[in-house]
Design a binder for these strands. Sequence first.
DNA 1: ACAAAAGTGTTACACATACACCCATGT
DNA 2: ACATGGGTGTATGTGTAACACTTTTGT
Lengths: 245, 245
Amino acid sequence: MFVVTRTKYARRVVFTSDHPILHVTVDVVVLTLRDARMCALMIRRGGPPYKGRWALPGGFVEIDEDLETAARRELAEETGVQDAEVRLEQLATYGAPARDPRHRTVSVAWLAVLPAPTDLTAGSDASHAAWKPTDQLLSRGRLAFDHRRILGDAVERVRAKLECTNLATAFLGREFTIAALREVYEVVWGQPLDAGNFHRKVTRTGGFVVSTGKRRSAGRGRPASLFTAGPEEFLNPPLTRRSLG
Amino acid sequence: MFVVTRTKYARRVVFTSDHPILHVTVDVVVLTLRDARMCALMIRRGGPPYKGRWALPGGFVEIDEDLETAARRELAEETGVQDAEVRLEQLATYGAPARDPRHRTVSVAWLAVLPAPTDLTAGSDASHAAWKPTDQLLSRGRLAFDHRRILGDAVERVRAKLECTNLATAFLGREFTIAALREVYEVVWGQPLDAGNFHRKVTRTGGFVVSTGKRRSAGRGRPASLFTAGPEEFLNPPLTRRSLG
DNA sequence: ACAAAAGTGTTACACATACACCCATGT
DNA sequence: ACATGGGTGTATGTGTAACACTTTTGT
């Protein structure tokens, strides 16, 4: 029950319905670790509204497109990451009537966690896309729309999921050392952890990490064993957030 | 950029946009305990598609309506529950292109947990609305749309939240006994718990329950103390799901 | 040899589990 | 008096927190 026409500039849709009509978008919070800081991929807006402000990558859901497919498309367009293995998790949906001044828009937010050295060359303009530290964005950043809240919810979700899943391994490459994994926890939780106890905990918790048998020297000190992420999504019991240094 | 006209039968909206256009609905999973079973409020569909099947209460989001407001409106329309105190929590958003055969519909699902004796008289027809046991619905029920999946996700969410929040108190009235609270856990988790240890755990965990000083006799046995729900949302450490009987 | 990081041992303590046992009420 | 359910005590096991200590490398 809709007609699509193509003008010189854009597709134009004339739609008839008995029901209210809203726009549906996806926004993706892409997180990674750079220089011991948690960073989010942000896009600088080139036009109104919120011109010049940082915004989450996102866009409209196509008419025959699954929500996760739309999020995956946005992720690929902005980062070049085509990997179907990337964990993409639905965060929440934001739909306050005034969140977009142009039209009523409901946005389904997604969370993606990537290993560190992702360059933004593929498909996106470096002057428009950048990795920004999440703590800066959340405290002093001037973000477009309600993206500060979405980002804040994403960071909270990641903090919570480190306790009871091995999501932390998503911040690392396929093979990693226990020390690197510990650094993820220390950065995300913002507190030092006991190296010895952490090592015991993650290696003895079945399904968390899998030993490869290989070792890697980090320049000085005893070479560390290499592990890959285990298959287990949920741990029982969870890691605790205590054990301050 | 839209025109609303009113015909004899329904509002008709003619809409013009440069972007894909989707319908947005809310569906509400309303859970309660009846006769030691977890039940969901279901609506029997009177017309196609899925005529005669059970569906979650839900409906279209109005053009100027917040998502939570829409969910709360649906809850009130179907149960008569106007209480602003009712916890309403966003579950997830479901948007597979074919989930509604009529038109592309994205549905934001919400979860509400209510005390048991809610009669459905207010505003809804008893022949169309009913409390159905969730285990039956999930195993043998023929549900409309993707509502089986939504219901399944809701039940999983509730099971998980009992471990680390005092959501269980939402199944009970303002004042309740520890035994009643324990029954909520036993029904939702489907396993018996040790009465003594449960009592100690919930009363010694700060913020979980608050003693009223009052007592209530249940006919036989020592009268139980009455408690109200504490303010705390998250517990540390969580209740464990073990302790089989 | 020394520094540095990986990994293990050890001890004290908190909490969970299992279950015995006492408490307060109705019949 | 007895049954019934509410609530506490207690022994035992298990995991955590803190930190000492050993292992394995680079310089």
